[in-house]
Design a binder for these strands. Structure first.
Lengths: 184, 184
DNA sequence: GATAATAGGGAATGATTGTTCCCGAATAAA
DNA sequence: TTTATTCGGGAACAATCATTCCCTATTATC
């Protein structure tokens, strides 16, 4: 059942919510129509489950990237690099469910909008936390505004997913190298 | 007829392509179904016309903002500020057709993808041009890489539209103030 | 071993979609 | 004035959508 949800997640990421019919869903999940509706109340419920699975998975990947840095600055660099790599190439054109949901659904679906909102805030808090860690361990100057910088970095990460979806090449190390100037 | 297209543009920006039925379109344009299909070949053509109108309008606004700066650095700051303001509040939650198209359609619609691609490149070239102008007039250091910095700034602008669509508040001056560190 | 319960599969259904067709009014041509 | 022609309107259409219903295996229970 988890593998079926993963396949659904993939289709939703590629095509978005409205463009994936439940026919597409059953084909990807390798389940019949009735079986899908026995596991989930409706299409919206499938999407919500896929959304939570996606955010959980991404959060895990991001924290894992952060752990591989020896101080706040290096942890933040690794996080940005992880975002850049995931926004590029085949994974990039697969798309991010959070930006997809924000763009396609947040205007008409309050439930999705709330999830997107908390997810963005969680990510922003994580980044501002890393900045403060860096300021505590001396790897980031104290005059940097953690809140403003974190919000701008969220814009960067979300923006990378947009241009990655548009299939523009993203050179992660170079882009992150420039972005690190925000910590000067 | 232009006013009808503007109304269609607004609906497409708010709801995206798939979520706007041609019923929504006729209601917004205050035209009957047959009249819409007499003016455009199909829904896709309406969207394409709205897209071109949108990019033309936005380009005009951006260049106008740039003109109000006395050197390259100030012109670039004004451009970023213009992006931030348009990404915030009521205009922000209305959304950007370029990021909407990139996210919702670029995976399945080659025609739209090409338009999004050229639009992103045009914007990027405009920004890198401003950076080079600033380097020529001495307002931006020569060691700044115009290409990489412009691409990152495109990510910033596209990202601001995503978080603006999610209705997160965006403090333009503060965000741009931080972003200007990329020109150090 | 017989029976109840469950899970999965797919046809049927009703609503909605995008599109086409045709009608009536208004304008231009004769 | 009469006749073409254009233009906008909306009903009709076929296709597709999400959803429900029912049937058939398979498993679990007694």
């Amino acid at each position: 059942m988890d593998v079926a949800l993963d396949r659904a997640l993939r289709v939703f990421r590629e095509r978005g919510y409205h463009a994936t019919s439940i026919g597409d869903l059953t084909a990807a999940m390798q389940l019949a129509t009735g079986s899908v509706y026995k596991a989930f109340r409706d299409k919206h419920a499938v999407f919500l489950a896929a959304f939570e699975r996606y955010t959980g998975l991404r959060q895990e990947q991001t924290r894992s990237a952060a752990r591989r840095g020896k101080n706040g600055r290096e942890r933040l660099r690794n996080v940005l690099l992880s975002y850049a790599e995931h926004s590029q190439g085949i994974e990039g054109r697969r798309g991010c469910l959070v930006v997809g949901s924000a763009v396609e659904l947040s205007a008409v679906d309050p439930v999705i909008r709330a999830r997107v909102d908390t997810q963005l805030k969680t990510n922003e808090d994580f980044i501002s936390g890393l900045i403060r860690e860096g300021q505590a361990d001396g790897s980031i100057p104290g005059h940097v505004d953690a809140g403003d910088t974190a919000r701008l970095m969220i814009c960067i990460t979300q923006g990378m997913r947009v241009v990655g979806k548009a299939r523009l090449p993203l050179d992660g190390p170079r882009l992150v190298g420039v972005a690190m100037k925000l910590l000067a």
